[in-house]
Design a protein around this nucleic acid. Structure first.
Length: 594
RNA sequence: GGGGGAUUAGUGUAAUGGUAACACAAGCGACUCUGACUCGCUUAUUACAGGUUCAAAUCCUGUAUCCCCUGCCA
């Protein structure tokens, strides 16, 4: 994970978390040690938002010569499954992270239980037999102060006895809880006698049926951190209100390690959703093919799509960390991706939308093997041979009748270069009855073999191509944003984010690819020249290749085209004064929780 | 109505009392056997209003806006 480039001459800018750690180190608060952790609940797949947290926590440990644990926060047996534990470990390893230790919150259940008894004995915890509704009612809210539970001052012995019997399974789910005795009038609702344990007769994925009580997050989390010797407990903004409680619990147990909780803003990305609930819904309603659907922002989805761990790490580093609730433009992720793939991906030619071209003056049956560079960014990648024949395919979009001056590609009477091959000139356009172009007749200049004209004549365009007789068919899955709107939650009244799903987020086509690709295996990443970066899908087989489009190449021509179209439209509308786009404000669209 | 946070170019992130930087995006141009890559140039009265100061993004006061908080979820 230390391969991300940080120019040594660039002054290291420190985010607020590193500044905080520096202060702690200066004061000697933790003896100069920095121990972090990544604490997922195993109830879903990791996504790019988790990657931000992962990269942060592991980078902190590395930067300060500390440690970083992976800890499964498995305190709720109802939602958690081994499947998720496995996927999380796989994703973490793929991202290139090696935890110092792999821990489970459930391993601390006995310690937590013993400490709970200690709090009861200290008179700061009690068993409450009120109903869930009654507890909610008594908690109050807003300006209403809470009211004390009638069980709040019951004798210690009674709570001790009841708590032991809760654990033993004598009581039904929801019948009683263990509560901390703090302050029912606190302005911070989290401090109004928060629940520490609930009764749950549920099977735990690691503890089996050993427990009938399970600890709540607020009670458990800080103590888990404390047990592991965590110094800086980094979490997301919504836990800021919980920090006083985090500190309170640890303070009750004198002489245990007291980590510092630090909160940062979670990642939001345009054109996608990040909440586990929404991702789960996409999977459960079969709106995508699964957690690893290449359109999903999950780590497994990105992996299958063809993202590299380097690109994701670079992205996480680039976006930085702060407390401002921001939304990152997906184009920044694309940029980090292209930056890495450009350096690492072998080039190859593939025609996605084939148009047949016959080289009229090329001998029938001849196969001319031409040398092509595998990666201009990496000389060690070497070269390969590409077969050229009388009939080839080019991209349909690379030919245009009555082409404008700015169109550098093929048109009647125009000459272009076929990459690594020859200059060709279009002599004739063949159409079917419907007027559709079905074939081009071109002539080639044998003197330009390899792609250069001995007479020094230049050509403006270079096209990729593939031999019609030597090429392979391949299924290509063209992916686009999963949603049509920057903010999928921006919907009409009565709709939700599902309404903004992009119906064109996947187009499957059959492409013609050069024979060199026959040996490719799932996970291989290549660049289809002039088109984009592609990755061999897990569905791919030797005789049935399947490619996923990871990301397109930047396309200046497309911009020129759309600008010309746009200008015409604008003229029609009126003067076309460009208004400044307002700052992204998603809040007005968010569904308020009732 | 209460509590906790936040606000710097279109989007993000820096600058921690010394005159707004970097990346992406957008636009213009150069280069090019990928209209890719690469390389140039362009883009901010620091949410607003006052105040302190020789000097304010930074300190003070007030205002506005946004986010989070009333699960026996995490």
């Amino acid at each position: 994970m230390s391969d991300d480039t940080t120019p040594a001459d660039e002054p290291k800018r420190k985010d607020f978390i590193r500044q905080w750690i520096d202060r702690d180190n200066e004061s000697g608060r933790f003896g100069g040690e920095v121990h972090t952790r990544f604490p997922p609940e195993p109830n879903g797949y990791l996504h790019i938002g988790h990657a931000k947290s992962i990269c942060l926590n592991f980078a902190l440990a590395e930067d300060y010569s500390g440690t970083c644990n992976l800890r499964f926060d498995d305190t709720n047996p109802c939602k958690e499954e081994q499947e998720y534990v496995d996927s999380i470990q796989e994703d973490l390893a793929w991202l290139g992270m090696t935890p110092t230790k792999v821990c489970y919150a459930s391993d601390y259940f006995q310690q937590l239980y013993d400490w709970a008894i200690q709090l009861i004995e200290q008179g700061v915890a009690y068993v409450d037999e009120s109903t869930p509704d009654a507890i909610a009612e008594m908690r109050g809210g807003g300006l209403d102060e809470g009211t004390n539970s009638p069980y709040r001052d019951r004798p210690v012995e009674e709570s001790l006895d009841l708590f032991a019997r809760m654990k033993a399974g004598e009581f039904s789910d929801g019948s009683m809880v263990l509560r901390a005795k703090i302050d029912m009038a606190s302005a911070n609702i989290n401090l109004r006698d928060p629940i520490m344990y609930r009764v749950l007769h549920a099977h735990h994925h690691r503890q089996g049926d050993a427990w009938c009580v399970y600890p709540m997050y607020d009670w458990a989390h800080g103590l888990e951190d404390s047990i592991e010797g965590i110094t800086h407990s980094v979490c997301t903004l919504e836990f800021e209100n919980h920090r006083p409680l985090y500190d309170w619990f640890i303070d009750q147990l004198t002489d245990i390690n007291h980590p510092q909780q630090i909160e940062f803003a979670r990642l939001n990305l345009t054109y996608t959703v990040m909440s586990k609930r929404k991702l789960l819904r996409l999977v459960q309603e079969n709106l995508v093919t699964g957690w690893d659907d290449p359109r999903m922002p999950t780590i497994s989805g990105l992996r299958r799509r063809g993202y590299s761990p380097e690109a994701i790490r670079k992205f996480c580093k680039t976006i930085g960390v702060a407390k401002f609730n921001s939304t990152i433009d997906i184009q920044l992720l694309d940029h980090c991706l292209r930056e890495d793939l450009n350096k690492t991906s072998p080039r190859v030619m593939a025609v996605l939308d084939p148009l047949k071209v016959t080289i009229t003056n090329f001998s029938e049956g001849d196969v001319d093997q031409l040398e092509a560079i595998n990666n201009p960014e990496d000389e060690s990648a070497g070269t390969r041979m590409v077969p050229f024949t009388k009939e080839i395919y080019i991209e349909r979009a690379d030919f245009m009748e009555d082409a404008p001056k700015k169109f550098f590609r093929l048109s009647q009477g125009r000459e272009v270069r076929l990459r690594y091959a020859y200059f060709v000139t279009c002599d004739e356009v063949l159409k079917d009855d419907a007027g559709e172009i079905v074939e081009l007749k071109c002539s080639y200049d044998p003197a330009t073999r390899g792609g250069d004209a001995p007479d020094g004549r230049k050509v403006k365009g270079t096209l990729h191509w593939v031999s019609a007789s030597e090429c392979l068919d391949a299924e290509v899955r063209l992916y686009d944003h999963l949603f049509t709107k920057e903010n999928p939650d921006a919907t009409e009244e009565g709709q939700d984010f599902i309404a903004n799903l992009n119906p064109d987020s996947l187009k499957t086509i059959t492409a013609k690819v050069e024979p060199y690709l026959a040996a490719s295996t799932p996970g291989d990443r290549v660049q289809f020249e002039r088109t984009g970066y592609f990755c061999v899908d897990t569905d791919s087989a030797a005789d049935a290749l399947v490619f996923n489009r990871t990301v397109t190449l930047k396309d200046k021509w497309k911009k020129i085209q759309s600008k010309q179209g746009g200008q015409q439209k604008k003229k029609k509308k009126q003067g076309g004064q460009q208004k400044k786009k307002p700052r992204l404000d998603y809040s007005q669209f968010k569904n308020k929780k009732k």
